[in-house]
């Protein structure tokens, strides 16, 4: 998994899920899960309203 979601910052809004090109993210009740489809493109981190996501390349 190449992204890290700061669960203390995240407002579980699902915006990142909506932009992820391969559909690697899932909003499960109140937290974000990422699977191995993630390509580290960084789009989710860019658009997160609160900057809760970090991508390592």
């Amino acid at each position: 998994m190449a992204i890290k979601v700061n669960k203390f910052k995240c407002g579980y809004c699902g915006a990142c899920v909506g932009v992820c090109p391969p559909g690697a993210l899932e909003l499960v009740e109140t937290w974000i899960e990422a699977d191995e489809e993630c390509t580290s493109c960084g789009i989710c981190a860019k658009i997160c309203p609160v900057g809760a996501i970090e991508v390592s390349r």
Binding site: C13, G14, A15, V17, G18, V19, C20, P21, G23, E26, L27, I43, K46, I47, C48, P49
Partner: peptide, 22 residues
């Protein structure tokens, strides 16, 4: 906004950054 149902059925609903207000 976090819809997966469409994607599961083969409809690509993923949004580009320019297609989303954050």
């Amino acid at each position: 906004v976090e819809s997966k149902v469409g994607r599961w059925a083969g409809i690509d609903t993923s949004l580009k950054p320019a297609d989303l207000e954050t």
